[in-house]
Amino acid sequence: MMNPLVLQSDFGLEDGAVSAMKGVAHSVSKVVSIFDNTHDIPPFDIWTGSYRLLQTVSYWPENTVFVSVVDPGVGSGRKSVVVQTENNQYIVTPNNGTLTHIYYKIGIKQIREIDEEVNRLPMSGASHTFHGRDIYAYTGARIAAGVISFDNVGPELAIEDIVRLPFYEPKLEEQSISGTIDILDVRFGNLWTNISRELFLQLNIDYGEAVEIEILHDTRRVYHNKVTFGRSFATIQIGEPVLYVNSLDNLAVAINQGSFAKAHNIGTGSSWHIYIK
């Protein structure tokens, strides 16, 4: 039975790298369905690669196979793996932190190291810089097309062997919530936090009320202001900031018809902290 194959990478689309990955997949099966998650992950940004998996994996059916290649350590001793999630999907990726969000927010049943003696594109053994094509797309397509089962990937590893980036859960303390800025809604420059709507509701804030927002990069304050909690962007004036619930049911910060990230030079990851009071 054929299952979807979903690709993401930091390769961009300026050259033929993504096309080569798709060509390899079709060399395994001419009828396997291939989809793109994104290929615009910033170069070498493992954290963003991890989040983009979390953002989309749950919306795909069981047995979907994801190939995620953000691999600054290609050719090093880092391991190539396939994991089975708690929702019975598969992710083919380097074990370099890309699985952080899946590990903490969805859960992982099993992890197997890819046996490159079996699961590697034939005649590619001399190349050590394009594992996305030679190992991950090839192995992912073989799983999606039913050529191999998960058990045929290679030896099982311990769940504790999964490499994880620093990760912080949001906290509610008195009348303040602390969290991290996990990612940007890139095209619009909105800040997406890891603070859930359910946690925020415990502050008893209604739409139209103002909250105090403070953003720190490590210990340096980058932003501090009062912001309106709005149902949508249309509830505030153009150019004004708004706190809202995003499509993943988490809190986000935006400027109506502007880029909050560019306006205040704000980045993402576990070193970017946000406080809502």
Rank of each mutant, 00 (worst) to 15 (best):
D249L: 07
Q237L: 11
P170E: 05
F167K: 05
I238H: 11
V147W: 11
I215R: 00
D10G: 12
Y244V: 00
L54F: 14
N256R: 15
I183Y: 07
I162S: 04
R164F: 15
K105T: 13
R221Y: 03
F130V: 10
F188E: 04
V57H: 02
F66Q: 05
I215K: 01
S127E: 06
G23Q: 12
Q8A: 14
N265K: 09
E240Q: 10
E86C: 13
T64V: 11
M123P: 10
N250S: 10
Y136A: 05
Y104F: 11
Y275N: 15
E174L: 09
D206L: 09
G208V: 04
G154D: 09
I106Y: 03
G208P: 11
Q55T: 08
K171G: 15
G146M: 08
G97P: 01
P155S: 12
L191S: 00
V24R: 03
T268M: 02
R120S: 07
P241R: 00
S176Q: 15
N250W: 00
L165S: 04
V69Y: 07
I143A: 03
L157Q: 11
N265H: 08
L191D: 01
V83C: 11
Y90W: 07
S27K: 14
E169G: 09
M21E: 09
E198L: 08
S124W: 07
L54G: 10
G179C: 05
T228I: 15
T48D: 06
H131Y: 12
V28R: 05
A254Q: 01
N246Y: 04
K109P: 12
P4A: 02
H26L: 14
A144P: 00
P4R: 03
M123V: 12
N225D: 14
F260T: 01
L243M: 06
V242S: 01
A17K: 14
K262I: 02
I106N: 08
D40Q: 09
Y168R: 13
N246S: 04
F233I: 01
Q89I: 03
R142P: 12
Q202C: 09
A126I: 13
R52N: 05
R220V: 13
L243D: 00
F260G: 03
N63G: 08
K22M: 15
I143C: 08
S33F: 05
T85G: 04
K22C: 15
A234M: 08
S19I: 05
V253A: 01
L53W: 08
E174H: 14
Q257P: 02
I195K: 00
I276A: 04
I135G: 10
P43D: 00
S29W: 14
A137T: 06
R120N: 06
A210C: 13
E116Y: 12
A234R: 11
N96F: 04
Q202L: 12
G189I: 00
I114S: 12
I276W: 03
S27E: 08
V32Q: 09
F130S: 09
A158H: 15
F66W: 08
D40H: 06
S76D: 00
G146I: 09
V81I: 10
T93P: 00
Q202A: 07
L203F: 06
P122N: 06
Y136Q: 06
